[in-house]
Design a binder for these strands. Structure first.
Length: 131
DNA sequence: ATTATGACCTGTG
DNA sequence: ACACAGGCCATAA
């Protein structure tokens, strides 16, 4: 059956499959669940999952920024957890996506078709992390 | 039932 | 290359 709960469940399962020392993005999860446009809902799902023992700290936004750290109680908690797993941070405080970004296998096969101009969006990253 | 907000992303000017 | 606006789905008031 296709319900909201089903979507949440998929998100949880995907997040649970994120390898230690790796991170993924909301968009990747959303698209892996079949809807790339509802990346926001993924965040909502994680909001309820932050206390469910899921590695939600391994989920970051497209730029590697820890946008969800504010939901961890302490801002440095999420960062500490990631660092404990061997994840390196950029000078901007963002996760080193090139090294630690992990994409679900299903999505990998999908995105083989398209090639996004990540160069353009990468240029945007400094602007976001500019606080 | 409608409006507003959110741990976001993509596309166009 | 940067800035603005739209969209999409679920929850809260």
């Amino acid at each position: 059956m296709k319900t909201k709960q089903d979507f949440f469940d998929r998100v949880y399962k995907l997040v649970a499959k994120i390898p230690r020392g790796k991170v993924t993005t909301y968009g990747a999860i959303a698209e892996a669940c079949g809807i790339r446009s509802s990346a926001r809902t993924v965040g909502w799902a994680l909001n309820g999952a932050s206390e469910s023992g899921l590695p939600c700290h391994r989920v970051v936004n497209r730029f590697g920024a820890l946008t969800g750290k504010i939901h961890f109680g302490d801002f440095h908690l999420m960062e500490d957890m990631l660092r404990s797993e061997g994840i390196e941070f950029d000078e901007d405080g963002c996760v080193n996506m090139e090294k630690h970004l992990w994409i679900p296998t299903k999505l990998k096969a999908k995105m083989k078709k398209k090639k996004t101009s990540s160069a353009v969006r990468s240029a945007k990253k400094p602007r976001l992390s500019r606080q």
